[in-house]
Design a protein around this nucleic acid. Structure first.
Length: 855
DNA sequence: AGCACGCCGACT
DNA sequence: GTCGGCGTGCTC
């Protein structure tokens, strides 16, 4: 059992009543299981558990013949399922619910809105440490020896090998057996041996979560009541020569940590064994004293997050301006559930958030602070830590399962009234949320793309807040078109903070005309002369530079100069990216790798060159041009290990790096005091990306990166290399004109009936063969047009990457009016049509994946 | 999604 | 003849 909170549901009460009245009732539980199957599954509650099973508790059940799964009880009732026998619940894992009633409502809403199964929601919502893993294991059947002697049952060679390996209580998992026998499918062998009664199959359940345990030692009672005895012992040890000096060391170390005159309570807390081992004392000398009855060993469950608890807390002071903004937000909250804060970079949004968080906590309510994935490892969290200390729980994908379970527990017990987390932290067991902050609300990482549920944490936060009657603050320097539109329509409150903290100036953004530089041949590799000059001057001034190129690797393609052949991925319809450091070609979609070819595989020519450039090439070229400059790259490839990201950031912050070259990673949540130049490459590709949001993305990205330049008194400079400096979007960027950009873009969206004017549902048809995917998608489109109306259905079109992991993808887009449309009914129609399609024999095997509000 | 069952080809 | 391929159907 994980949690102690008292919770008695009505069902439990009525069960107790029934028992008192001597009624015999059979109870059933509707259980959510982590499987992509429609509906809930009804299990019978064994009599001995009938009082204990509560809604929201985890149970272990059999599902199908083999499988053992962890499920969540949704409802307890007495309605026996009609046309089938309910299986029994095997085990109850929580005496108190793990998931509360508002969470279950929330899960149902998500499954409904995003067109997925409840089990899929359960899968993302629960940290996997809370799910049991079931392992089928195989054991030798001892009575087989007698059977074998009597009937001489024949065994195949493989069966014999397996039996030989099982003797002597050696249970094996199915996977181990597969490896041992070198077969893919172990079931036939298992089945045959089961039939011959040679083996027994059993399920081993494992609770994955393990509390962190520290082994400690403390004085035994004998010494505790009279600590002077310890000094006596020390003297006695001193008299005896031989090896007792080691034991003296132990006692001395103990007294150094906990002086003899320390309070008894301190002595009782003891010392971790590791404290002794650290100073070179061996375990054996410790054990000698344990044997003597001086110390005793004990274990203590500790938090994995203890380290922060001891830091002194800081408080913050708002400037008058920030104070003013905060009161505007509060005033707006009186009328609106949701408020959009358009705060330019450097306006001190974090301080304002902190103030609002404090006020919510003072009211005894919880706060959820959502951040995009990468921003979470950065300064903003350490600032929050300094203010909120042990009250702050951080929920991040780099955390281990065990750590996530501890956050979950902490939220449940309200030890963490404030949580800063990534999108999946909306699933933590809050019971009294007062405020949700969605920072950088425009960030696409709030949307989960794969697997289902394809939810958007920003949008679902509004639902979560509604359930808790809480407020939502959306914050961004570059709000999404959707949110800004809602604010304009008066659906959201709207506050603008356009003064930078300490009156710091906005950076000066300049466009570098690459067409001209190319004509005049003033380019050096991918660097314009202006860019190089700026970098050089900046380094001389001992200032730092960030270079942004939104593409990792060295070059996005290789190509043969003779025949234009391009190496492509064997599983996906993309070219392979060349990585110099590892000297290999890699697919960024499926992870496939191969060595770069020495010669063209098409014509045999050895004239192979790279096309395009990524962060690795920028880094490489810059080092060639200026060998004395310290350049560091920050992208997915250099930040794979747990701490590498932090290391790079620390190195940059303490100025041991001059130039940081990176992808999106350098644009988010980073604040450095000495960056006065930002250089941006290859932006034209982004502007012309075939997606209706490409302009919005580009504007947001450029504004975000630019915000990294200049602090306080220093005005920063941003250089953007482009072949089209006259592009209206870039003009809006250089004049820091979000309003203007919004007006341009919203007009486009209205003209083409894109969100926020319409609602989009994208349907991807996946098949193993191209022709099949096209055929099925075409048929689906026709069916949908018939029920939804011609104009609302577009496509099918091949996905941007037509083949990924050997699956061919076709997209059908559905555009719906915002009002006067029954969304539920539309989704029902879509479901019916997809079911109708897959009932056709030809299309049985293909996958049809709906994505509501795609990004 | 798993996993079982069942019906086909290519091997000891 | 059997092993093991994957198409089909079901899971309370």
């Amino acid at each position: 059992m994980l949690f102690k909170e008292e919770h008695i549901s009505e069902e439990t009460l009525s069960a107790e009543k029934n028992i008192k009245e001597g009624k015999k009732n059979t109870f059933f539980a509707d259980v959510i299981l982590p499987v992509p199957v429609e509906g809930r599954f009804t299990y019978r509650i064994p009599a001995e558990l009938s009082e204990k099973v509560q809604e929201g508790a985890r149970v272990v059940v059999n599902f199908g013949k083999r499988r053992v799964l962890t499920g969540i009880v949704m409802r307890v009732h007495q309605e026996a399922p009609q046309n089938r026998q309910a299986k029994y619940i095997l085990e109850l894992l929580d005496e108190q619910p793990l998931v509360n009633a508002s969470q279950l409502r929330f899960w149902e809403w998500i499954a409904d809105y995003y067109m997925c199964y409840l089990g899929e929601v359960m899968n993302v919502a629960l940290p996997s440490g809370l799910k049991l893993s079931s392992l089928s294991k195989v054991q030798f059947n001892p009575s087989f020896v007698a059977l074998q002697a009597q009937y001489q049952i024949p065994l195949s060679a493989k069966e014999q090998i397996l039996i030989d390996n099982l003797v002597g209580d050696n249970a094996l998992t199915f996977e181990q057996i597969a490896n041992l026998l070198n077969v893919k499918n172990v079931y036939p062998i298992i089945k045959s041996l089961l039939f011959k009664e040679a083996i027994i199959v059993f399920e081993e359940l494992k609770e994955k979560y393990k509390p962190k345990i520290v082994k400690k030692i403390r004085l035994t009672k004998h010494y505790l009541i009279d600590i002077d005895k310890l000094t006596e012992l020390l003297d006695a040890l001193a008299l005896q020569k031989r090896n007792f000096s080691k034991q003296q060391d132990v006692i001395l170390k103990y007294l150094a940590e906990i002086p003899a005159d320390a309070p008894i309570a301190t002595h009782q807390q003891g010392l971790p064994k590791s404290a002794f081992v650290k100073v070179g004392i061996s375990e054996s000398s410790l054990h000698a004293l344990i044997k003597k009855g001086v110390f005793e060993e004990f274990e203590e469950i500790v938090s994995r997050f203890e380290e922060y608890d001891t830091l002194p807390l800081k408080s913050i002071t708002l400037t008058d301006y920030q104070q003013e903004i905060v009161s505007q937000i509060e005033k707006s909250f009186q009328e609106k559930q949701t408020v959009l804060l358009h705060g330019i970079t450097g306006s001190g949004k974090t301080e304002m958030y902190i103030d609002l968080i404090n006020k919510t906590l003072d009211r005894g309510q919880q706060v959820l602070f959502l951040l995009p994935e990468i921003a979470l490892t950065t300064q903003i969290v350490s600032r929050l830590k300094k203010v909120f200390g042990a009250k702050l729980g951080v929920y991040h994908s780099r955390f281990s399962d065990n750590e996530r379970v501890e956050i979950w527990k902490g939220v449940w017990e309200n030890r963490f009234p404030i949580v800063a987390g990534v999108r999946s932290s909306i699933f933590l067991p809050f019971n009294n949320l007062g405020l949700i902050i969605v920072d950088e609300e425009h960030d696409p990482s709030y949307k989960q793309y794969d697997p289902a549920p394809r939810y958007n944490a920003r949008d679902t936060a509004l639902i979560l807040a509604h359930i808790h009657q809480a407020k939502v603050l959306l914050g961004s320097a570059t709000p999404s078109l959707e949110s800004y539109y809602q604010a304009q329509q008066g659906k959201y409150g709207f506050i603008k903070a356009d003064k930078r903290f300490g009156d710091a100036q906005l950076p000066e953004i300049q466009l570098v005309n690459m067409s001209i530089e190319r004509k005049q041949k003033t380019l050096k590799y991918n660097f314009s002369s202006l860019m190089l000059q700026a970098i050089e001057e900046n380094v001389q001034k001992k200032e730092q530079t960030i270079l942004f190129q939104n593409r990792r690797g060295f070059a996005p393609h290789l190509t043969c100069q003779e025949c234009s052949w391009i190496p492509t991925c064997i599983n996906c319809a993309v070219s392979l990216t060349f990585h110099l450091a590892s000297n290999e070609l890699r697919c960024h979609y499926c992870g496939y790798r191969e060595s770069p070819p020495a010669s063209c595989l098409n014509c045999g020519s050895t004239k192979i060159k790279t096309v395009g450039f990524g962060t690795e090439k920028i880094e490489d070229e810059l080092k060639l041009i200026y060998p004395e400059i310290v350049v560091q790259r920050m992208d997915l490839d250099t930040t794979r290990s747990k701490y590498s990201y932090q290391t790079i950031i620390d190195d940059f912050a303490n100025q041991s790096i001059d130039v940081l070259v990176g992808t999106q990673m350098v644009t988010k949540g980073l604040d450095f005091d000495h960056v006065s130049l930002v250089g941006i490459f290859d932006i034209d590709r982004l502007i012309h990306f075939p997606d209706f949001r490409s302009h919005e993305r580009t504007f947001q990205l450029l504004t975000q990166v630019s915000g990294r330049a200049g602090r306080k008194d220093k005005k920063g400079i941003v250089l953007i290399q482009t072949a089209k400096p006259q592009h209206p979007l870039l003009q809006r960027v250089i004049s820091h004109d979000y309003e203007g950009f919004y007006q341009d873009e919203i007009a486009e969206r209205e003209k083409h009936f894109y969100p926020p004017f319409s609602r989009v549902i994208n349907i991807t048809v996946k098949a193993d063969e191209q022709s099949l995917s096209i055929e099925a998608a075409t048929e689906l489109t026709q069916k949908l047009k018939a029920v939804l109306g011609e104009g609302r259905v577009l496509g099918p079109v091949p996905a941007l990457i037509e083949k990924i992991r050997n699956q061919y993808l076709q997209n059908v887009m559905i555009k719906l009016e915002r009002d006067k449309i029954n969304l539920k009914a539309v989704k029902q129609l879509i479901k019916e049509q997809t079911i109708g399609l897959t009932s056709n024999r030809r299309y049985k095997t293909l996958h049809i994946v709906p994505d509501v509000d795609p990004m």
